[in-house]
Structures are given as structure tokens and as C-alpha cells.
């Protein structure tokens, strides 16, 4: 039960994009149509889940026993970056169709702050293995949800007649503000 409320809180209440402002770059960049939003979302879920487990293991098995927790930041970013590279390589080699739908978003993910944030958050919150797994799926699921909703709005927005200086990203950010306002209404659920 606690895990469920943790997942709901991560997806809806403490949504990474709308309350923590992480992953805004892909939020503005990839949300031009809903198909690429879903592709990006799935790729992010996979990478965060894999990378979080790896960094969790690295932290508990290497960094803590040897008292080198100060290496956390640098080792985590390297693990994430390496993980993304190897994932992309395997997808390229073994599944052309998967590469077609997800592969093109993988290079964007190394510099996606959500991945590093979740890896570090699991450690700072002191989660155990199960909680880490739940957290690393529900946080990117929230990312995907908002990305998808936003892309649907954005498709309509692009055909709207906006003033020249507001066109594109500025008006998209106003829409994001309204979405954040709507999501803040969900704060009472858990």
C-alpha cells in the first residue's frame, strides 16, 4: 500500500516535469507530436529503470564499503552514459523495428537530467531495493504522462494564431504553467 501511494505521489503530485522542472529540454523539444512523445517516454522509462538499478548496486557494493561516497556524482553519470551507449548498440544490432521507434531518442537521454536525478534521489531518500524499483518506474512514468498530454495540447497550439514573439516555446510554457496549476489540484490525493 505504501508503495502504491509512493508511485501515485511520484506520478501525479511530485511530477518531475511540472513540480521539479526536470527534463524540460525534451519536454519542449520532443513534444511536437504524440507519437514521438510516447517513444521518448518509453525510452526514458527503460533507461531510468536500468540505470537506477546499476547505480544502486554500484553505490551499495562499491562506494559504501570503500568509503568513497564522494565519487557518487561522477560514477553515476558515467554509468548512465555507458548504459545508454550499450543499450543503443544492442538495439541497433538486434532489432531494427525497436530502433526505429525508440532508438532515435536514446542519444537525447544521456543529457536528460531526470535520469541522474532519479539515480541520486534513490540514494538520498535512503530507499531499499524494492522502493528504488518502484521509484525508478513511477518517476519516468509521470514524465511520460505529462509529455504525452503536452504533445496533444501542442498539436492544437501549433495551428493557433499567436503573436509573433509568443509563437513557439513562450506560449508552450504558458500552457505548461496552466498544466502545473491543474496538477497542483491533485495534491490532496495521498
Amino acid at each position: 500500500m505504501e508503495l502504491l501511494s509512493m508511485a501515485i505521489a511520484a506520478i501525479l503530485i511530485n511530477n518531475v516535469v511540472l513540480t521539479q522542472f526536470l527534463g524540460i529540454c525534451p519536454f519542449l523539444g520532443v513534444s511536437k507530436n504524440s507519437k514521438s512523445a510516447v517513444g521518448m517516454g518509453l525510452a526514458v522509462i527503460f533507461v531510468i529503470f536500468g540505470a537506477s538499478l546499476l547505480t544502486f548496486a554500484l553505490y551499495k557494493l562499491v562506494l559504501v564499503p570503500f568509503n568513497i561516497e564522494y565519487m557518487q556524482l561522477i560514477s553515476f553519470i558515467l554509468v548512465i552514459a555507458a548504459f545508454v551507449q550499450f543499450t543503443e548498440m544492442f538495439i541497433k544490432k538486434y532489432s531494427a523495428s525497436l530502433y526505429k521507434s525508440l532508438g532515435i531518442y536514446l542519444p537525447l537521454i544521456t543529457t536528460n537530467c531526470v535520469v541522474l536525478f532519479v539515480a541520486q534521489d534513490n540514494i538520498t531518500q535512503g530507499y531499499n531495493l524494492i522502493e528504488t524499483m518502484v521509484n525508478s518506474i513511477s518517476v519516468p512514468a509521470g514524465f511520460m504522462l505529462v509529455l504525452f498530454l503536452f504533445s496533444c495540447l501542442r498539436e492544437r497550439l501549433d495551428s493557433a494564431d499567436t503573436t509573433a514573439s509568443w509563437r513557439g516555446n513562450p506560449v508552450a510554457l504558458v500552457v505548461a504553467a496552466l498544466m502545473a496549476l491543474a496538477f497542483s489540484g491533485l495534491a490532496g490525493i495521498v
Partner: peptide
């Protein structure tokens, strides 16, 4: 101080800068 204000303030400045540029 929350996220709504951040997005709103940011979009206003972004529009202002786009206006200057144009």
C-alpha cells in the same frame, strides 16, 4: 514561488527576448 510562477515568469521573459530579437 512554486512551479506555476516559474513557468509564467519564464514565458514572459522568453517572449520579451524574442520580441527584442525580431
Amino acid at each position: 514561488s512554486g512551479s506555476v510562477g516559474a513557468f509564467l515568469t519564464f514565458s514572459c521573459f522568453a517572449a520579451l527576448f524574442a520580441f527584442i530579437k525580431q
